[in-house]
């Protein structure tokens, strides 16, 4: 997107589009390679995994055997190439703590994270859009001022502290919802889901609500500014002049037009949400990939942390790539030469 200000214009031909996609793809791959070097170098600086695994009273021979079995006795460039080669084949190594393939570990935990994140997005959309539309249509009314101040407060409450308040109020004082863990799940298509389990649903409420607060604030603001924008467009004026019922005006013409930016921005925020679920999962002991990351950091479980970093980079690079390509399709000026 930063390229837009170069201002070079290209024709609206398929060839420039292909070129643009190829160039962005190339940039993304270079970015991933740079990140892989940084991650590898960074992780090597942290701690000596042999010392961590062998413990205090290991002999020198033990250490060497251990280093050999994990390939840690090789020169660094060789270790890096081996590391890169394995990653490309989808082999992120074996967890020092769990003794199992890292990728399997992460994919096992992924549904729990996705479940909370998507539930939070749904709640955010369901609450935020009506609040935003109301504020946009009734700018001078008192509830709008309350909503507006509410979003500022919501933005200002740190995620982790808000999670603690939820636990304090709903689990300690009112005793209506469990404070931590995932509870029972119902298996559908081989994956366990909490939302389809009456008891499990109680466990997912607090973590999802915790993530949803920031989303509600964001979507309220987006829907409000979108509503203000769309209501003054000529087609809305025309629809109003034609005497279309207010409910139809809002439900059909307004909603359809403000939904596109809201959904786009929410999609772009998906990565941020998955990242933020690290905090939520840690506070609520929710067994997703965020908690796995922090547990692995505390236990110096290097392969897991490395895999998380690489996969997170891959995810963010992909999200940016897709967003750039969509923007380039929509706005030909971006396809610079």
């Amino acid at each position: 997107m930063a390229e837009a200000d170069h201002g070079h214009r290209c024709g609206r031909t398929d060839e420039t589009m292909t070129n643009f996609i190829l160039r962005r793809l190339g940039q993304s791959i270079i970015l991933l390679l740079i990140m892989s070097v940084l991650v590898f170098a960074g992780m090597y600086v942290i701690s000596d995994p042999v010392a961590v695994m062998a413990g205090e009273d290991a002999t020198e021979a033990d250490r060497q055997a251990l280093a050999r079995s994990f390939g840690l006795d090789q020169p660094l460039p060789i270790q890096y190439l081996t590391f890169l080669g394995k990653i490309v084949q989808g082999d992120f190594g074996t967890s020092f703590v769990y003794g199992r393939p890292v990728l399997a570990l992460i994919f096992e935990r992924l549904p729990a994270t996705l479940e909370v994140v998507f539930l939070a997005i749904l709640v955010g959309l369901a609450v935020g859009i009506p609040l935003g539309i109301y504020s946009g249509l009734n700018r001078k009314k008192a509830p709008t001022k309350v909503i507006s101040f509410g979003t500022t407060v919501g933005y200002s409450i740190p995620n982790f502290w808000q999670a603690l308040l939820f636990i304090l109020v709903f689990a300690v004082w009112l005793r209506v919802l469990p404070a931590s863990g995932r509870g029972p799940t119902t298996e559908i298509f081989g994956v366990g889901w909490s939302v389809f389990n009456a008891e499990g649903l109680r466990y997912v409420i607090l973590p999802a609500a915790n993530l949803a607060v920031a989303l509600i604030c964001m979507q309220t603001r987006l829907a409000r500014s979108g509503t203000q924008e769309v209501m003054y467009q000529d087609y809305m004026m025309f629809a109003r002049a034609k005497g279309i019922a207010r409910s139809r005006l809002i439900g059909r013409h307004l909603l359809r037009n403000i939904l596109i930016p809201i959904v786009t921005i929410t999609g772009l925020e998906l990565g941020t949400l998955i990242a933020f679920s690290t905090v939520t999962e840690t506070v609520f002991s929710w067994p997703g990939i965020g908690k796995l990351l922090l547990d692995s950091i505390y236990r110096s479980d290097r392969p897991v942390v490395v895999a998380y970093m690489i996969l997170a980079t891959l995810m963010f690079v992909l999200i940016n790539l897709v967003a750039d390509i969509i923007y380039a399709i929509l706005d030909p000026r971006i396809r610079y030469s």
Partner: peptide, 12 residues
Amino acid sequence: TADLTLSFPGVL
């Protein structure tokens, strides 16, 4: 380099 840093959410 700025793009690279900005592609990650701050806290992560």
